[in-house]
Design a protein around this nucleic acid. Sequence first.
DNA 1: GGCAATCTCCTTTTT
DNA 2: GGAGATTGCC
Length: 655
Amino acid sequence: MMVDGSLNKEQAEAASWSGSHLLVLAGAGTGKTKTIIARAQFLIENSSSPERLHILTFTRRAAAEIVERVKLKLGDRSKGLRASTFHSWCMQTVRKQPKLFGCSEHTVIDREDQLYIFKILRSASSSAKDARLPKAAALCDLYSFVRNSNSSLREYIEAEQPKLLELFSSVVDIMKCYEARKSQKNYLDYDDILDIVATQLAENFQVRDIIGDMYDEILVDEMQDTNPLQWKLINPLLEHIRFFCVGDDAQSIYGFRGADFKNIHSFTERVAGASVMRLSLNYRSTQEILDISNWLLSESVYPYDKNLIAARGLGLKPVLRTFSSEWSESRWIAEDLLKHHANGDPWKENLILTRTAYSGRTIEMSLVEKKIPYKFVGGTKLFESAHIKDLLSAVRIIANPLDEIAWIRYLTLWEGVGDVTAGQAIEAIALTESLKDAISILRKHQRLAPDSINILEDAFIQVNVSAMITTCFKGMQGTLENKYKAQNWEKRSQDINVILQLSSKKVSLSDFLNEYVIDPLYVTEPTLSDEDDKVTLSTIHSAKGTESNRVYIINVTPGAYPSTRSYGSEESIEEERRVLYVALTRAKNELIMTRSGYFSEASASATMPTEYSRYFLTTLPENMCQVVDERYEGAATESQTLHTLEKPGIGIRFE
DNA sequence: GGCAATCTCCTTTTT
DNA sequence: GGAGATTGCC
């Protein structure tokens, strides 16, 4: 019963746990991943075969890393160990035994596709002209949130948007139509993938026994971010499979997807026979970085009960740097990166964090300008980029001729065909399940170019996935080149090679299409050799679970932390605090926060609408950070302390 | 007049 | 990169 000697006492105790279900409450940097790896190693060495374990993580990246690290320890003995996201695990489960779930060939649709359907249904609604009816995107989010939080539409609307009750029946109609459309077209959205498995497990004993018998233990990473839909998946299995869960309430940042960080506190009530353990010593960061992280949480109205202590001791003070514009902000970061690289630091030791993918674009331009190699995690995903969607629309049609979203995208690519013509064509083949029949109907359509139809016919008879894609690409090349000639066609056309490489291993067309919708690849991410030395640019959400020697958090500005979008409730503002907390605790040795604009600490907070939403850094104690203001002439490297702070508004509330 | 092509503004977080 | 408004073509 040996465990890895490099573990501390708490980690070793968790890894060699012999009781029933366990929740390991692990603060940032306390060795969460290491403990999961050690647990897998322990089980494989002592009791389980690798294929009877499964590790659930939040990203493909984390999953791959864990499997890789177990393999380093155990070599071939870890063969068969799998880790995946919840979604991808459900998809694999369905694919392995489609009969158990009553579904075989399906097209997985992403958010953009969902929005397309909601847009059509919204405009067809009798309340379409009513300004009170939410936009398609809001309807889509509403639908998804209700499912993920396992509440009813009425309950949710009553609690959160009571005004919308006036249009309740219209909203219900739209959502019913959405569900009908999905089943008619063989579409599965992200939530369906979980729901199909969760519902079948909950309702069907036979399925529960079969799946339950497949595993000894499931290890769940980032437990604080699981939502009620994911719990619905886990619950029926608790009697069959042991769960080993790891999480940190202070790092819960998926409330918008139905996760409730308080759930982790009631773990032992929700899971019969469960125990809880804690990991408290931080091995990642220096004490100065933890001081500011601890301070941020201590300012919260919630009792997080977190005070991280650095095993590594003291280091450098974090830096807060203010610039006059986002351009000077991003230029400074690029120059700082160059400076450190010239001193011998590899690029890959740097992580740049942003709240939104959009705000990463300015820094991205500076990196390109200075020729600094980087990858953007959370930026554009390869399968979501326009040219790939264009190409794959043809492939989607072949995989599922009922796929109207693919049809409209494909048909409107060609010159002289717009929404209306494509809409008519789709109408004509709406119920045609065979591609052959659809093609012969469309041949008679006058506005459609014969070439565009021939391509589909040619691709259809190819023997494998790559050959189909090659055929489609050859036929579409000229059209795509014309469409993207002003937008980097040279670079875009290279992506076809990536697509072909990915597809060469796939036997089934829909497996290939679905896999990368569920587990995305990023455009700037090198597909096969990601050992490359690159700076990482990432949204904070996508950076969860990672760490880096030097971390830049950009745009730490009033309005961004907390985001103006979160002003509605204290709960959502507190989630923003945790987002910043996650960002701070990624840093091992150097933490640099940057921001831009003209504001003073006092005015920053004064513009906030209510008493509880203040700019997080307003009350930052003087000695916690090195503060540099580069906004004014000649201001350059002098370090300054903060201005006199506004006295915090304490006391009772009268109204 | 109907439809396609083009231009301008805005951008939460993810599977 | 997309939504929505506007322009311009048949």
